[in-house]
Structures are given as structure tokens and as C-alpha cells.
């Protein structure tokens, strides 16, 4: 067997394995997508692959937009009013929840990044007593699970009357996100070339000017990649929002709306298929618009220069 032939075989094996993994990975998502366009009763009765079969028993259309409309517009329901008349009321749509999610996520992404960037710069380039100790504490906080902090923080918020406000959840997410943010950004910022900073100091730049004019622009990849992490984490979060923000309709975020949509007994789970794809839109936009930084950012601090 020649070298070339052997190489072809190994290529086939490698690509075959990759193809298999991709299939295993994407097939369920594809099934979800197909299900989201199917009629409610069919989602319950048969698997998504039967949507493509040529022999179908039912006369209903193969694909419908019902699920998406119901998720977006809210479900109509009828009831008999006290006077005996049939009243048709439309349910809550997603718009309020969407706005709430944005109101929670954007500040909860920006605040920790700002604070962490300042902190990372301080840890990396400023001399002050106890620098190592403080940094060790920050790294140590990485391993503290946020769940154990829920009840103590809730008690403090009760005293401060912060429960159920957006400020409460911003602060909570900031606190929970800061250790990782500081650590990631420290690794990146501390590896910036010393010469650039020294020449800035030589020209008389203060720490603040250096930070704003040099460090921030240079750290864009790391900032962007952490922004993606934090954004996705906060966007998908249900627990922290439920605890600190609550589920009142005027503050409920998307994940809570989705959970409610299933109904008190889960009877409307077929709506989750469409809901999942709708809630994905914004995170996907954020990811793709920031993704060119993402790969660079993942390597942040991994290679010592």
C-alpha cells in the first residue's frame, strides 16, 4: 500500500467520523425544526420523520405555521362571561417577554465586562499591596456555585427592597459573572506587549488614559468573546431570573414565558418546538456578529508570548 493510498483511507476514516458526529449532533435539532412546523395532533401522534413519508393518513397540511403564530401572537381562548356571552380573549404574546429579556441581558453583559476589564488591568499592570492575594480570591470564587448564594442574596435584597427589580438581577448576574470575566480578561491583558504600555507611560499617559486608549481597543477579541459567553448565559438563564425577578408578567423573561406556554400540566409542549427557534434568533445574531472574535478570544491567554 502506497503512502498516498494510506492517506486517502485515513482521510475517509477521519471525515467519516466527523460526518457521523455532525449528524448525531444536528439530527435532533433538525427534528425539532421539522416538528415546529407540524400540526399539533400530528406532533403528538407520530415522529417528525413521518412528515416526509409519501403515505399520510390525515388530510391536514403537511406543514403549518400554527405553532409559530401561537407562540408569537399568544393563544386565543374563549370563556363564558358572567353575563353568559362568549368572550374571546387573546393570550399574552412574546413581545413583553422579549423586551424584558433584552432589558435584563444587555446591562447584565455590559456591567460585568466593564468592571472586569478595569479589574483585569489593575491586576495585570498596577502595583498595589495584596495584589496576588486579591487575585487568588477572585480565581477561588470561580469554583463557588451560584446556587449556594441564592438564599443569602435574596435575604439581603429583601432588606434593601430590591426584589423583583431589574437592578437586582443585573447585580446578581454581574456578581456571578465577574470571577470568570476578570480571570479571562486578566490572562489576555497581562499578555499584551509590555513595550507598548511602557512607551505610553513614558509619554506621560495616566493609567486611565492607557486603559481607555490602548488596553480596551487591543482587548477587543477577549471582550467580545466574553460578551458572547455572558450574553448566552444570561439570555438562557431561568433560575436566577425566577429567584430575583420573579414571574410577574411585567418582568417575566423569555425563558419563563416559554416555560409557561407549556401550560400548567405540560399539555401544550408542542409549542416549545417553535418557541425554541424564536428565542434562538437573538443569541444567534449576537454570536454570528461577534464570532470572528470568538476563536481568537478562546485562545485568550492560552499561549504565553
Amino acid at each position: 500500500m502506497g503512502m498516498k493510498q494510506r492517506k486517502t483511507i485515513s482521510d475517509i476514516v477521519v471525515n467519516g467520523v466527523l460526518l457521523f458526529l455532525c449528524l448525531v449532533w444536528t439530527l435532533p435539532t433538525f427534528g425539532l425544526l421539522v416538528s415546529s412546523f407540524r400540526y399539533k395532533d400530528e406532533v403528538r401522534r407520530t415522529g417528525w420523520w413521518t412528515a416526509f413519508s409519501t403515505q399520510r393518513e390525515s388530510e391536514t397540511p403537511r406543514f403549518v405555521l400554527d405553532n409559530y403564530l401561537e407562540v408569537l401572537m399568544g393563544r386565543d381562548f374563549t370563556y363564558t362571561s358572567a353575563t353568559g356571552a362568549e368572550v374571546r380573549a387573546s393570550g399574552d404574546d412574546l413581545s413583553q417577554a422579549f423586551l424584558n429579556s433584552i432589558a435584563v441581558t444587555v446591562p447584565a453583559t455590559v456591567i460585568p465586562i466593564l468592571i472586569a476589564a478595569f479589574a483585569a488591568y489593575g491586576f495585570a499592570w498596577m502595583d498595589f499591596p495584596g495584589r496576588k492575594v486579591f487575585f487568588t480570591i477572585v480565581v477561588g470564587l470561580l469554583v463557588v456555585p451560584l446556587q449556594i448564594a441564592l438564599i443569602p442574596i435574596l435575604r439581603d435584597y429583601t432588606l434593601l427592597q430590591l426584589n423583583g427589580t431589574f437592578l437586582a438581577i443585573w447585580l446578581a448576574h454581574t456578581g456571578f459573572g465577574l470571577p470568570l470575566a476578570t480571570y479571562l480578561l486578566y490572562n489576555y491583558i497581562s499578555n499584551l506587549p509590555r513595550d507598548i504600555l511602557e512607551s505610553a507611560f513614558m509619554d506621560g499617559a495616566s493609567h486611565f488614559t492607557t486603559f481607555i486608549r490602548l488596553i480596551l481597543p487591543l482587548s477587543m477579541p477577549a471582550l467580545a468573546s466574553f460578551a458572547i459567553f455572558q450574553f448566552l448565559w444570561v439570555w438562557n438563564d431561568l433560575l436566577v431570573a425566577l429567584v430575583f425577578l420573579g414571574a410577574r408578567p411585567d418582568v417575566a423573561v423569555l425563558t419563563q414565558r416559554l416555560q409557561e406556554m407549556v401550560g400548567s400540566r405540560g399539555q401544550d409542549w408542542h409549542l416549545l418546538t417553535a418557541g425554541a427557534f424564536i428565542t434562538m434568533i437573538l443569541p444567534l445574531t449576537v454570536f454570528f456578529s461577534l464570532q470572528r472574535y470568538f476563536v481568537r478570544g478562546l485562545l485568550a491567554g492560552s499561549v504565553k508570548g
Binding site: 393563544r75 381562548f77 370563556y79 393570550g91 414571574a247 416555560q259 409557561e260 406556554m261 401550560g263 400548567s264
Partner: peptide, 10 residues
């Protein structure tokens, strides 16, 4: 409470 959506409205 535990009930949501339509039940909550009612």
C-alpha cells in the same frame, strides 16, 4: 402558585 398561562388568567 403553580398554575400558569390560561389558568393564571382565569
Amino acid at each position: 402558585g403553580a398554575f400558569v398561562d390560561e389558568d393564571a388568567r382565569r
